[in-house]
Write a protein that binds this DNA or RNA. Structure first.
Length: 592
RNA sequence: GGGCGCGUAGCUCAGUCCGGAAAGAGCGUCGGACUUCUAAUCCGACGGUCGUGGGUUCAAAUCCCAUCGUGCCCGCCA
């Protein structure tokens, strides 16, 4: 609805400016500050002051006079306030918003008939997911949800690095050592916690064992890598035994967030299919290709990249980057667009990949990269190989535990009786605990550095998930009290209500905020920035709480018609906040 | 040394791409509001030369230049 209003304002303003013989290239349309009653404004009068030979307020006045608001549907009035033009919303605007928003899918944009693959997480299958990389699945999942909600057909991919040296090391260690060689029991009863011990053991061995033993081990590792390169089934199966098990465990951990995938794409796939070999041949043909120090590389200096991209080692094996190029060409074949969420340490590599894909004749506009910076510990980086770091499972467990304590404490303090049973408490603890962890991460710009601290990560105070979740619970509470089941009975809400009955400022503010939701989705999806949705949920919650304070819905002294209108407003609010939370991947509790 | 991020209240952050209305939240501090549709809420107060210095503009947190601090990267690793 906001988008229609905006289009209408643009048209009207453009018309008025051309009638007055002013240029129309920049309409200066902007969103006014909060304390101004309009929904859209324009500062165009500043720019026109010179040309008009009059001060901005006078110019604004002339433009306002030129627009006949009676001819506009969504604009009730155009006011010149000083140098600014303000467009006030009409009742029709609010009525249509209310009508649209009482639909469950409110905010979802029309299908664009465009497929998008969102690749995220793609952590090496070496062990438990740690918090250092937890931003990736959380941001990645939210980006995928966002793009999906914005009307694209989305597939979620996890690109599995199963051909790198570390997987050969892991395979060798898994085959070489036995349970009794390991120092510690698994930290948790799940397969990746068990197997990571072999990986750590293998790495420690390679660092500390006598030289001749290390050499023998290296020979074995090398033979695994050569086997993979040759597309050898036996090597592939040996590595897969480790990869599939570890990945299975990691998938369970990620599912707790929840972050789920449509497909796990292994990089060995592109070695076995011959795609990597073909790609190497094509790379060799490029003008930028050179053969130096026995290795094939690409000189990208002319394209603003100082570092050469080696694509074939002197021993004839490919590199991660080579396979990733083949992987990207495959994605371009299968999808209209590709989005990759990756850590900022891959930035240079991402640039090389993009440039090289372009040199190979690909349309790289369809590739977008979302970069985030890692979460570090106060004492430094987290590492699976060294076993330093906080496991994501532990963080989630702790968050749930603290949320449970919180629920129980609050239950004791409650003035009202809430009929929360043990299942409710457990459900709320999960929704709030995990929601808080996700929200904390997804609500910030991904490029900001984060240092992990328990207290901060587990802060449930306002401006975090529970604040927004509570608004949803309040909506559900009102609906239930009115005899409507928020999960199944939302169709029972009377939607053909008179929006003019919503006459208080709090009601209109809330409705205007609801009206902006689809526009927020549109812009956030364009920018691939889910944190814009989080910012919106905060504003929304703020507005809703204002309404909740000022406007009783079910009280006895509320006029029945006003009651219906307010109930519709609550239903609309419920949909807006539930959908916004679902984009963020944060649960929307029915009670808390 | 070079490339790319980040720097806004004591703390954690929106706002910066696309310049406009005396800079917005939350936490913390202080003071208020539960016989009311759930107080994980709300209301009020205190708190800022938007890292620093220049420039462009009618207008700069936002654009340009310089500078300082900080993070990441600069492997025939992934």
């Amino acid at each position: 609805m906001f988008l229609s209003l905006r289009a209408e304002v643009e048209d009207a303003l453009e018309g008025a400016l051309s009638t007055l013989d002013f240029p129309t290239d920049d309409l200066g349309i902007e969103e006014p500050p909060e304390d101004v009653a309009s929904v859209l404004a324009s500062s165009v009068a500043f720019r026109l002051a010179d040309e008009a030979g009059a001060p901005p307020p006078q110019v604004a006045g002339r433009i306002a006079d030129e627009i006949d608001a009676d001819e506009l549907t969504y604009v009730a009035e155009v006011q010149a306030q000083g140098p600014y033009l303000n467009f006030l919303p009409s009742d029709a605007y609010l009525a249509e918003t209310l009508d649209e928003a009482t639909d469950e899918t409110y905010g979802r944009l029309p299908d664009r008939d465009t497929s998008v693959v969102v690749e995220h997480t793609s952590a090496n299958p070496t062990g438990p997911v740690h918090v250092g990389r937890a931003r990736n699945p959380i941001i990645g999942d939210a980006v995928a949800n966002l793009v999906d909600f914005a009307g694209y057909d989305v597939d979620r991919h996890y690109y599995v690095n199963d051909a790198g040296r570390q997987m050969a090391v892991f395979t060798w260690a898994y085959e070489t050592f036995d349970e009794e060689d390991l120092d510690e029991p698994p930290e948790r009863d799940r397969i990746e916690y068990d197997l990571v011990r072999y990986y750590r053991k293998g790495n420690a061995y390679l660092e500390n064992a006598p030289e001749d033993e290390v050499e023998a081990a290296e020979a074995e590792i090398e033979s695994i890598m050569q086997g993979l390169e040759a597309g050898d089934d036996e090597a592939y199966e040996r590595v897969s035994e480790v990869v599939d098990q570890v990945l299975g465990g990691m998938t369970e951990c990620l599912a707790r967030l929840p972050a789920e995938f449509d497909e796990f794409v292994k990089e060995t796939r592109f070695m076995r299919s011959g795609a990597t070999d073909d790609l190497v041949d094509r790379l060799k043909e490029l003008d930028e290709s050179i053969y130096e120090e026995d290795a094939w590389q690409l000189e990208l200096e002319d394209h603003g990249i100082d570092k050469n991209l080696v694509f074939l080692r002197s021993d004839g094996t490919s590199l991660y980057a080579t396979r990733d190029l083949a992987h990207h060409e495959w994605k371009f074949d299968e999808y209209d667009r590709a989005v990759t969420v990756l850590g900022e340490d891959h930035k240079l590599q991402a640039k090389q990949v993009r440039t090289t894909l372009e040199l190979l004749g690909n349309e790289t506009d369809q590739l977008r990269q979302v970069l985030y910076s890692y979460v570090n510990l106060p004492e430094g980086k987290m590492s699976t190989r060294r076993g330093t770091g906080v496991d994501l499972d532990d963080l989630l467990d702790e968050a749930i535990d603290r949320a449970r304590e919180e629920v129980e404490d609050r239950l004791d303090d409650r003035i009202r009786d809430d009929e929360l049973d043990d299942d409710d408490i457990e459900r709320i603890a999960h929704q709030v605990g995990i929601g808080a962890v996700r929200y904390d991460i997804v609500s910030k710009q991904p490029t900001k550095a984060i240092t992990f601290e328990w207290e901060r990560a587990l802060d449930f105070e306002a401006q975090s998930a529970p604040y927004v979740q509570y608004v949803h619970a309040r909506c559900c509470g009102i609906l239930e009290e009115a005899g409507i089941d928020p999960e199944t009975g939302m169709d029972d809400v009377e939607t053909a209500v008179d929006a003019e009955l919503l006459e208080t400022e709090a009601e209109r503010d809330l409705l205007e905020t609801i009206a902006r939701f689809p526009a927020v989705v549109d812009e956030a999806a364009d920018d691939l920035q889910p944190h814009q949705i989080a910012t919106y949920t905060r504003e929304f919650a703020n507005r809703f709480n204002g309404f909740y304070r000022e406007c009783p819905v079910l009280a006895d002294d509320v006029d029945p018609e006003v009651r219906e209108a307010r109930l519709a407003l609550v239903a609309a609010s419920k949909h807006a906040v539930a959908n916004a939370l679902s984009i963020l991947g944060v649960a929307a509790p029915r009670s808390m």
